[in-house]
């Protein structure tokens, strides 16, 4: 399998003395949908900055599709598309001009640039806005425009730094579908996100970065299998008058308000055992939901394991 990106012993010390990356080594295979997770200040954006050459590294090597970014500057940049976390386009330019100009920077002739920008603006639902000033777009539209801009030269590797931050749920899901589609079409995607559900839904492999180090690098499936505990909120149809407090091996039930009970299952116990225990108490359950995203629990447990429980989820 071809490796899309390979970094070894990547280090970054900023002028302030902050060591943002402390020797990261990582490989992402071609065609992968890869999640890079970590709390604020963990080094995710620095990593992306180095790969996209916006940040100069203090040590280590970066290869994109087997080519060193220092010696094959043109080809490695051509293979790479970046959607940064911060808005970084001219607010005074028209939407179509922003995307076409980016195509020009990549050397696409004018006709091809116009065709590509139409293709991606249409796919991302922005074609009708092509003559609007980019500052007039909503937050979600600005993000989509940045995705169109990053794709206009059709890179083999797309890096997205929190692309759905501040985007409403409906739009986020349509962006997920779009990203899954281009990934299926062959584009390798690296995604950083604060929405752990997003990483769980989209990504096949995952690395967790904290304090400039990779603390986990595995497949999403393997990581989620490690999770032995599931927490649910169960809703009752009637008002719960008395206390509900069951603590058995592998099953814990606790009333959290007049209509809701928290159920925590572990050791292979299933949700039927919780419902049966409540049924014995005469409590009928009409609906239930996950208490927290499974990946979020794992993520927190990994960071807490390092003595760092303060994360933004």
């Amino acid at each position: 399998m071809t490796v899309a990106i390979s970094v070894s012993n990547l280090q970054k010390r900023y002028a302030s003395g902050t060591m943002a990356l402390k020797g990261i080594s990582l490989e992402v295979e071609q065609g992968d949908f890869f999640a890079l997770l970590g709390p604020n200040g963990a080094g995710k954006s620095t990593f992306i900055g180095i790969v996209s050459t916006l940040v100069t590294r203090s040590g280590g090597r970066v290869r994109v599709f087997g080519r060193d970014v220092d010696t094959h500057v043109y080809q490695t940049k051509l293979d790479l598309g970046v959607v940064p976390q911060e808005i970084n386009f001219s607010q005074f330019e028209k939407v179509g001009d922003v995307v076409r100009t980016q195509a020009g920077y990549y050397g696409l002739p004018r006709k091809l640039a116009a065709g590509r920008s139409e293709k991606y603006l249409r796919q991302l639902g922005l074609w009708e806005k092509r003559n609007d000033r980019s500052r007039s777009l909503s937050g979600g539209m600005k993000r989509r425009m940045m995705i169109a801009r990053a794709l206009v030269h059709e890179p083999r590797l797309l890096i997205l730094d929190e692309p759905t931050a501040g985007v409403d749920i409906e739009l986020r899901r349509s962006m997920w579908n779009f990203l899954l589609e281009i990934n299926r079409a062959g584009t390798t995607i690296i995604l950083t996100t604060h929405y752990l559900e997003e990483a769980e839904q989209l990504c096949r492999n995952i690395a967790i970065i904290d304090e400039g180090r990779i603390i986990e690098n595995t497949s999403m499936k393997k990581l989620l299998l490690e999770l032995d505990t599931h927490a649910f909120i169960l809703d009752s149809d009637a008002t719960l008058d008395g206390e509900v407090n069951i603590d058995e091996p592998g099953l814990s039930l606790r009333k959290i308000d007049s209509h809701s009970i928290e159920a925590v299952l572990s050791g292979g116990r299933d949700i039927n055992s919780a419902i049966a225990a409540l049924d014995r108490l005469g409590i009928r359950i009409i609906s239930m939901r996950n208490k927290a995203n499974r990946l979020e629990q794992l993520f927190l447990s990994r960071l807490r394991g390092k003595g760092n429980g303060e994360v933004e989820g």
Binding site: L54, Q102, Y105
Partner: peptide, 17 residues
């Protein structure tokens, strides 16, 4: 400077220019 300020200079810096 205005491209630095708006960070749109990054569009150029990531491209093979």
């Amino acid at each position: 400077f205005s491209q630095k300020f708006q960070r749109s200079v990054e569009e150029l810096l990531v491209a093979p220019v």
